[in-house]
Simulated scan of single mutants.
Amino acid sequence: MLSRINLEHILFLDIETVPEQESFDALNDEKKELWDQKSKYQRKEDFTAEEFYDRAGIWAEFGKIVCISVGYFRINGENKTFRTTSFYGEEDKLLKEFKNLLNGHFSSTKHLLCGHNAKEFDFPYIARRMIIHGIELPFKLNLFGKKPWEIPHLDTMELWKFGDYKNFTSLKLLANILGIPSPKQDIDGSMVREVYYEEKDLDRIVTYCELDVVTTAQVFLRLRGDELLDESDIKSI
């Protein structure tokens, strides 16, 4: 039962990713060929490999993380606050900072990680990029040898599926149907590459990422049957 989980034991997170290079032309010949092979099924005949490169950020082999935002609850009696913070900038640095957070404050067996579609995207993406950078995986992301019930991951999209594996529901849609106020966002996921490489406005991406973490936490509260957070309960640190 979700209601039995201590909210203070959950670290909510979201990541934003972009293509590893600004343009297809920046890839060497071998990487161009590998990208052509990797993307062929998804793009079919509608796009060339070069035209499709804008979407390379969704693959850990061809993308990189530019922001990891996290959020966690602090409860004092009847008072509940939700604090958010972000790691952003150079990927190697932000991955190490995120790992330090996990190892320092969320390393116990009682602690859980939670995101939306995170089992399919965020968690494996972070793990793959850590390995690419030669960073030893923290316990919370190293799934080798673990039984399914030992994996310390929650996923709000999976919780909403109720066993229906055909169902994909976006965070924005889920928040809407659950009556969660939609945060004012001036970008969406499809714009992150443009904002990062062309506008060079990382602050906008960080704000967007943190708002998604807040929305994920609100969805989790609704799934538990709890009251939603008020805006005054949310603190960015």
Rank of each mutant, 00 (worst) to 15 (best):
residue 220 F to K: 01
residue 225 G to E: 11
residue 205 I to M: 06
residue 198 E to Y: 10
residue 106 F to V: 08
residue 63 G to L: 01
residue 2 L to A: 10
residue 16 E to H: 06
residue 157 M to R: 00
residue 117 N to H: 13
residue 153 H to P: 00
residue 55 R to Y: 13
residue 4 R to P: 04
residue 109 T to F: 03
residue 108 S to M: 05
residue 32 K to E: 00
residue 112 L to P: 09
residue 231 E to K: 15
residue 237 I to W: 08
residue 6 N to W: 09
residue 33 E to F: 07
residue 14 D to N: 14
residue 155 D to S: 05
residue 99 K to F: 07
residue 152 P to N: 08
residue 230 D to I: 01
residue 114 C to N: 07
residue 29 D to G: 01
residue 143 L to E: 06
residue 228 L to W: 06
residue 119 K to Q: 11
residue 24 F to Q: 00
residue 40 K to M: 11
residue 133 H to I: 02
residue 116 H to M: 06
residue 86 S to M: 06
residue 30 E to S: 13
residue 105 H to G: 04
residue 121 F to N: 03
residue 120 E to Y: 12
residue 168 F to H: 14
residue 24 F to K: 03
residue 119 K to S: 12
residue 133 H to E: 14
residue 3 S to N: 12
residue 17 T to A: 15
residue 206 V to M: 09
residue 151 I to D: 03
residue 6 N to D: 15
residue 189 G to I: 07
residue 27 L to V: 02
residue 12 F to E: 03
residue 107 S to Y: 13
residue 201 D to C: 08
residue 182 S to P: 05
residue 198 E to T: 08
residue 144 F to P: 01
residue 167 N to F: 11
residue 92 D to C: 12
residue 50 E to V: 01
residue 98 F to N: 02
residue 13 L to G: 00
residue 113 L to K: 02
residue 125 Y to F: 15
residue 71 G to K: 03
residue 141 L to Y: 02
residue 199 E to M: 11
residue 195 V to G: 00
residue 155 D to N: 04
residue 48 T to A: 11
residue 70 V to N: 05
residue 219 V to M: 09
residue 104 G to T: 00
residue 58 I to Y: 04
residue 116 H to G: 06
residue 182 S to D: 13
residue 19 P to I: 03
residue 62 F to S: 03
residue 106 F to K: 04
residue 165 Y to T: 09
residue 17 T to E: 13
residue 33 E to I: 14
residue 160 W to Y: 14
residue 227 E to M: 09
residue 174 L to M: 14
residue 153 H to R: 02
residue 194 E to R: 13
residue 3 S to Q: 12
residue 175 A to S: 15
residue 133 H to A: 14
residue 68 I to Y: 08
residue 212 D to C: 10
residue 101 L to W: 06
residue 230 D to P: 06
residue 112 L to M: 14
residue 200 K to G: 05
residue 12 F to M: 04
residue 153 H to V: 00
residue 92 D to I: 07
residue 159 L to S: 07
residue 116 H to W: 02
residue 103 N to W: 10
residue 143 L to I: 14
residue 164 D to L: 11
residue 35 W to M: 04
residue 178 L to S: 01
